[in-house]
Simulated scan of single mutants.
Amino acid sequence: MEESGGSRAVINTSNPYQEFDQSSSTSVVACDSHFIRSPSGILVCAEVVLGLLVCGLIAGTDYFRVSAFGWVMFVAVFYWLLTLFLLILFLTHTHSRIPQVPWATVVLVFNSSAAVLYLVSAVVEATLVGRGVKGHHNYNSWAASTFFAFLVSLCYAGSAVLSFRTWRERDSG
């Protein structure tokens, strides 16, 4: 429990997606260090960093000549931007100002879809890298991007498991 200027905010460190108490309606935007240190926060930060690596490694090549790399780039950029947006929402507790949104469900669907689409992208990219682009001058960047795409899909899968637990707790509680 934290007290700040007469408003009460409930912080549950075991459930980082737990919304703040509705009586907490201050206009001060603060950074939640509890979320960043939680398993969910660590995974989200890893997703942002690894997703940026996937984007950067592909963007530095002539990926547009191979249409499947365009798909990988789309997934990487799309989920990187949305993950960054959700990170900012949860760090600043802005999500608690929109109680109409079922955040546990939104985060569960988001993480599950990201895990599946990133895994598909990583498999597509691995297939392309393993099948004949070895002599291509972008091979090293594409191979590294494939590795990081698999890592970020694992991070999203871990986040999906954690968000499923949160969703189940909210549903049964």
Rank of each mutant, 00 (worst) to 15 (best):
G132W: 10
V10D: 13
V107A: 11
I58R: 01
A122T: 02
A122C: 02
R131Y: 09
F85E: 08
L151E: 00
F90Y: 15
W167P: 06
V133S: 03
I88H: 07
R165N: 06
I98F: 13
A160F: 02
H136D: 14
P99S: 09
L162M: 04
G173A: 10
D62R: 15
E19M: 15
S14N: 14
A104K: 14
T83H: 06
S33F: 10
I98K: 08
V107C: 10
L52Y: 13
T146D: 01
D171F: 15
C31I: 15
S38T: 04
L91W: 07
V109N: 04
F110C: 01
E2D: 13
G6F: 04
M73K: 03
G6Y: 04
W80N: 11
F148D: 06
S112M: 04
A59V: 09
T61D: 00
S25M: 12
A30E: 15
V152P: 06
L87R: 08
F90T: 13
S159Q: 05
Y139M: 03
L89E: 06
V10T: 14
W103I: 00
W71Q: 13
D21H: 13
G60Y: 11
Y63E: 03
S40M: 08
T61F: 00
A144F: 02
A114V: 01
T146F: 01
V75F: 02
L87A: 09
V66E: 10
W167H: 12
G130I: 01
G158Q: 02
E47A: 11
L151H: 00
E125Y: 02
W142S: 06
F20M: 11
G130T: 05
S7E: 13
F110R: 03
